[in-house]
């Protein structure tokens, strides 16, 4: 029995060690990739045309889905808040609850999830397919650096687009919450905005945009890294894409959890 317990503990420790090793390897490789992207950008080796194409694809192309997500987030937050505020709490407080929830949390996080599903998965699958079909090797053999041609434009575009998308999501989400509050609990726009202003901190918006900036950098960084590391045909592309999506979601949630103690205390 003791031997069995010892074996189980050892197996768990081995597994933990392997996982820690894998996480450390990925973290190291992504740090190196980030440095190489920074170096390529600062030395002017990234074509503006490539960045503009990615801005169109990542930024402009995501606007409709981000808008729909923000509208639904605002409406649901407003309705659920209104449902809870039926006792002695003044209804205008709902304005503050909706605004803070959207700007501090739902705007950046829901926009990140949109970007992970719509952009991150696509980047990993695209670069993974290029890797397994030797297109990345072809770039190398043609004297082109895949970091300059493929990685940097996507990471730059993500880092620029995301804060703007988060700002847009914040605005649309709060507006949708305002409209929903009027129809669900009959709270007028003036009262909603009064409540929103009452507990408003001017840095809340900066906090939200900063989250967007960090998530906008990390999502394409992970997806490019996973795409470049793809091995073994169509199955490998599928595996890499799934792993990338899981890694992006976990990373965004972990980073999101580190923001309040760092910036809101």
């Amino acid at each position: 029995m003791k031997t069995l317990a010892r074996r189980t503990v050892l197996a768990l420790l081995c597994r933990l060690g392997r996982t820690a090793g894998t996480v450390a390897r990925h973290a190291g490789e992504m740090t190196l990739l980030a440095f190489r992207v920074a170096a390529a950008t600062l030395t002017g080796r990234v074509a503006l045309r490539d960045v503009l194409i990615q801005l169109q694809s990542i930024g402009v192309g995501s606007i409709p889905l981000v808008a729909v997500t923000a509208i639904l987030s605002g409406v649901v937050t407003s309705q659920q808040g209104g449902y809870q505020f039926t006792s002695s709490i003044p209804l205008y407080v709902l304005g503050s609850v909706v605004t803070s929830s959207i700007i501090l949390e739902l705007g950046p996080v829901m926009t990140s999830f949109v970007l992970i599903g719509r952009v991150g998965a696509r980047i990993t699958a695209e670069l993974g397919t290029m890797k397994v079909s030797e297109q990345i090797d072809a770039l190398h053999s043609l004297g082109r650096d895949p970091v300059c041609v493929l990685a940097a434009p996507r990471i730059i575009a993500g880092t620029i687009s995301m804060p703007l998308l988060v700002g847009l999501a914040d605005f649309i989400g709060v507006f949708a919450g305002l409209v929903a509050a009027r129809f669900s609990i009959g709270l007028g726009a003036d009262s909603f905005l009064f409540g929103a202003r009452l507990y408003w901190h001017s840095w809340d918006l900066l906090y939200s945009i900063t989250k967007g900036f960090v998530f906008g950098f990390i999502i394409p960084l992970i997806s490019v890294h996973m795409g470049f590391g793809t091995r073994g045909g169509a199955e490998g592309v599928g595996r890499a894409t799934t792993s990338a999506v899981v890694l992006m979601i976990i990373t965004v949630l972990v980073l999101d959890a580190t923001f309040p103690p760092l910036f809101l205390n």
Partner: peptide
């Protein structure tokens, strides 16, 4: 690498580029 041309097993053409753009990448 500029001295060396490489012909890949399955051509490894860039899917998103047309033939002209693919061949142009072979130039310096």
């Amino acid at each position: 690498r500029r001295k060396v041309g490489y012909v890949f097993q399955y051509a490894a053409l860039f899917d998103s580029m047309n033939v002209f753009e693919n061949v142009v990448t072979g130039l310096p």
